[in-house]
């Protein structure tokens, strides 16, 4: 039973089904309950898997590695172990560069991460050198309005003592000063 305002319904088209609510209506000596809260917390021990383990071990050493699809020869980062196009295991590891290129981006004006980013900030799709599929990353050290397709970036890493087996090792990406990659060369990556 509710004491909130009745919800407006269109007249004539449908009516509420006839339900005998007399029993409910007779409950007058208790407050209505509109919300119960059941906190639930679970801890999961995720398995990165063989391919991701190799990736994470590399990133711990400030290296980026991808894996090649045996059929299409495309290089995937981060590798999941299987090429989504052929359905086959990606067994060949490929050493990638630590630089990349902006293939698209957006400028974010709200802090969605909860850790007080400078607003606005840029979230970009970045094609890491040597790979064939862009990853998302934060772009800094450049005014948001100056970010553009084809902008060359370097990865900026946490201090050596902070390095772990995590993507978080890359703090953000920043311009590396190289000339832009022509748009035509990026057409296949969005």
């Amino acid at each position: 039973m509710s004491d909130s305002a009745p919800i407006e319904l269109p007249e004539g088209l449908w009516s509420q089904p006839a339900v005998d609510t007399s029993a409910v209506d007779s409950i007058t000596d208790v407050e209505s309950v509109q919300l119960i809260t059941t906190p639930a917390k679970f801890v999961y021990d995720y398995t990165p898997g063989v391919a991701r383990t190799r990736f994470l071990r590399a990133i711990e050493q400030k290296r980026l590695v991808g894996q090649r699809c045996p059929e299409t020869q495309k290089v995937y980062i981060p590798p999941a172990g299987v090429s989504p196009v052929s359905g086959l295991p990606t067994l060949e590891e490929v050493e990638l560069g630590l630089d990349g290129t902006v293939v698209s981006y957006c400028i974010v004006n709200l802090d969605f991460t909860g850790n007080a980013q400078e607003i606005p900030y840029v979230s970009a799709l970045i094609l890491v050198d040597g790979s064939d599929i862009p990853i998302y990353g934060l772009v800094r050290e450049i005014a948001p309005e100056d970010v553009h397709f084809g902008l060359r970036l370097k990865s900026v890493w946490v201090e050596p003592e902070e390095m772990t087996t995590s993507f978080e090792n890359i703090k953000w990406w920043a311009p590396n000063g190289e000339p832009d990659v022509p748009k035509s060369e990026l057409a296949d990556y969005v």
């Binding site: 995720y46 990165p48 991701r52 990736f55 994470l56 981060p78 957006c106 974010v108 969605f112 991460t113 980013q117 900030y121 979230s123 990853i135 998302y136 990353g137 934060l138 772990t164 087996t165 995590s166 993507f167 978080e168």
Partner: peptide
Amino acid sequence: MPFQQQLVA
């Protein structure tokens, strides 16, 4: 998850 790329937005 630590092994997933960050989606910062």
